[in-house]
Design a protein around this nucleic acid. Structure first.
Length: 504
RNA sequence: CGCGGGGUGGAGCAGUCCGGUAGCUCGCCAGGCUCAUAACCUGGAGGUCACAGGUUCAAAUCCUGUCCCCGCAACCA
């Protein structure tokens, strides 16, 4: 049994979570659940990135302290993910001074000892109206578009991380077979082209006067760590890295996968491994980069007013239909779209008419004969489907994997029509229904990573022996995903509607 | 010449790496079935795969060029 460690990006809690946050968590959760089902000892971590000027400013605007702001907002994220059945093992908060800070501070010291940190003057354009640094791109005719005045040149001292020194090493890491694999592949090429263009050193700290809400730089009272050293380190701080609590189980001994959005790909692909290497820590193995969600075909933005709030979708359709939508309609790595119309169509056709109806028609027929289940052994038809499904799951092609399950459902529906069990003699009918019930048992297992509650309900209605253990973290496919492998299964449960008609 | 993604039947997408009868979902049309949540099944119409050249026995797929859309470019999932 090999070990896996999977993480998501930590969310910035200065506003309520939206669909984009949910997409990432669902994606990572499907992977984590698949890892566990495949028998891997898995750790799954999510969390929040709570420092930074933006929170400092949002808090000031509301007249509360940054700590009060994050303490108020973090539960919005945590509660949502609990509701969504995200099976994380640990929720890290970067403001946790016991769990997070020690590793961050030690990592900084290691980087400094390695000669990768250097104090420099940093000059940039600063708009006092916006209270932030501007880039040339932000300016219109050399002026801040919001305040109609030219920003002033401000120089401040920053610690810099000498990333450029690692260009060669990074290129090797990203191209080595056993290095750091980026999925999808075009993101790897993009990253390599970034290296080709020349990497710049990165500002790793800010003077306390401009950023106070963060981890203090060790041995430099006037500086606060900027986001990178603080936030990225969340992946190893709860493991006690670089402290006396260090536990290597889920890092050195595990395959590490980071699930993140395309906006922060470069930080995870370049900064993070370089930081780890220079601190003498193992680098991660896989970087799974997802795209962004549009809303009704347009970029989601507050000004357009088309931001989709997860709770609205959950209230109307429920948890699993949302998880199903994000897994089925958004190919991993690419941008996707959320549309209410597509949500409704998917709910009706896939969940209600195909899966729900199939379960119902089979169970009603079984019930009419007394509810006995008898799986004919000679009909092995599931092995090939499992093989294809597992291949897709293992290569993170999740929507394709789900489509394989949907095809199996379609095949079952076609099979009923072809065999017409209702017109057969009892013995033949039992055989046909045995095949269908067994297929449904496997469909339940294959759906488990995507829609865990639905998978459990299907299994309960079918009456399989392990139905109540399905969502336990130690539950694995071992010994139950072969044809007829649930030997003690002999009776079906009661059929109930899986997905209601919402129009009624 | 900043970087990247995309342009495939009415809609949304897969296929492009490793050329070989253009596939899926939804919608539409016609049949079938009646176990089931008026659900399910079968068949059909509809595409010169953005455009122009080139390579090849053969190109959506490789090469060259052009046009259009969309992201990103130090803290925005």
């Amino acid at each position: 049994m090999s070990k896996k460690y999977i993480t998501t990006a930590i969310d910035y809690p200065n506003a309520a979570p939206h669909m984009g946050h949910v997409l990432e968590k669902v994606l990572a959760d499907v992977c984590a659940r698949w890892f566990r089902l495949s028998g891997h000892d898995t750790r799954f971590q999510i969390g929040t990135d709570e420092h930074g000027v933006k929170n400092q400013r949002t808090a000031a605007k509301e007249g509360i302290s940054p700590k009060e702001l994050v303490d108020r907002n973090v539960p919005l994220f945590k509660d949502l993910y609990d509701k969504l059945n995200i099976s994380y093992d640990y929720f890290v908060r970067t403001t946790d001074q016991d769990v997070h800070f020690p590793t961050v501070i030690e990592l900084w010291k290691k980087l400094k000892d390695s000669g990768m940190l250097e104090k420099r003057n940093y000059t940039a354009l600063y708009c006092s109206g916006c209270e932030r640094f501007m880039t040339n791109k932000d300016l219109v005719d050399g002026k801040c578009p919001d305040h109609q005045k030219a920003p002033e040149e401000v120089t401040e001292e920053n610690w810099f991380f000498l990333l450029s020194k690692d260009s060669k090493w990074l290129k090797k890491l990203l191209t080595d077979k056993n290095g750091y694999t980026i999925v999808p592949k075009f993101r790897q090429q993009e990253t390599l082209s970034l290296i080709e263009q020349g990497l710049e050193d990165i500002s790793f700290s800010r003077p306390k006067s401009s950023l106070d809400w963060g981890v203090p730089v060790p041995d430099d009272d006037n500086q606060t760590m900027y986001v990178w050293c603080d936030a990225l380190t969340n992946y190893i701080s709860p493991l006690g890295y670089l402290t006396d609590k260090e536990d290597k189980t889920y890092w050195d001994d595990a395959e590490v996968t980071h699930v993140i959005g395309k906006d922060i790909a470069r930080f995870h692909a370049l900064y993070w491994p370089s930081m780890l290497k220079n601190a003498g820590v193992k680098t991660p193995d896989k970087l799974l980069v997802h795209g962004f969600l549009t809303s009704e075909g347009q970029k989601m933005s507050k000004s357009l007013g088309n931001v989709v709030v997860p709770s609205e979708v959950i209230d109307k359709y429920g948890i699993d239909p949302l998880r199903f939508y994000l897994s089925h309609e958004v190919p991993v790595g690419r941008d996707g779209d959320f549309s209410w119309d597509r949500m409704q169509k998917m709910y009706d056709s896939k969940l209600r008419n195909d899966i729900g109806n199939l379960l119902n028609r089979v169970l009603v027929l079984v019930g009419k004969d007394g509810g006995k289940i008898n799986v004919p052994e000679e009909t092995e038809i599931i092995g090939d489907t499992w093989k294809k499904y597992a291949e897709k799951m293992n290569s993170f092609e999740l929507s394709e994997a789900l489509q394989i399950v949907c095809s199996l459902v379609s095949d079952c529906n076609a099979y009923i029509d072809k065999k017409k069990p209702w017109g057969l003699e009892i013995e033949d009918r039992e055989k046909v229904l045995g095949v269908l019930s067994e297929c449904l048992r496997h469909i339940g297992l294959m759906l488990l990573p995507f829609v865990p509650d639905t998978a459990e309900i299907i299994s309960i209605q079918l009456g399989v022996s392990y139905a109540d253990k399905l969502q336990n973290k130690g539950f694995s496919l071992e010994g139950i995903n072969l044809w007829g492998s649930d030997k003690s299964w002999c009776a079906a449960g009661k059929p109930e509607i899986l997905f209601e008609d919402l129009e009624k």
